[in-house]
């Protein structure tokens, strides 16, 4: 299924956000996630179903002012 991860078109196998985070190689607690512009808390990633065309953001801590 084709989705957008952090702005890039990607073909993925994962059906849920939780599986996608694992498939991308992240520790679940190292990232924060959003699906189609809405925050998805860690405990809700397992029930967040991905569909074709979904926009996923997986964010990590970064330097900031």
């Amino acid at each position: 299924m084709l989705v957008k991860i952090n702005g890039e078109d990607r073909v993925i196998r994962a059906q849920t956000l939780e599986l996608l985070v694992a498939e991308e190689g992240f520790e679940p607690t190292d990232v924060a996630t959003a699906l189609d512009g809405e925050f998805v808390p860690r405990e809700e990633r397992g029930s967040a179903l991905l569909r074709a065309g979904a926009r996923v953001e997986i964010l990590t801590p970064m330097q900031g002012g």
């Binding site: 992240f26 997986i58 964010l59 990590t60 801590p61 970064m62 330097q63 900031g64 002012g65």
Partner: peptide, 27 residues
Amino acid sequence: TVSLRREGKDGGAFRDILKDSGCRILP
């Protein structure tokens, strides 16, 4: 102060700095 971005190249090192600094984090 810190921010939130798509994974950059030194994300891991930065996390260590935050932890070691003992500072309160203001995202």
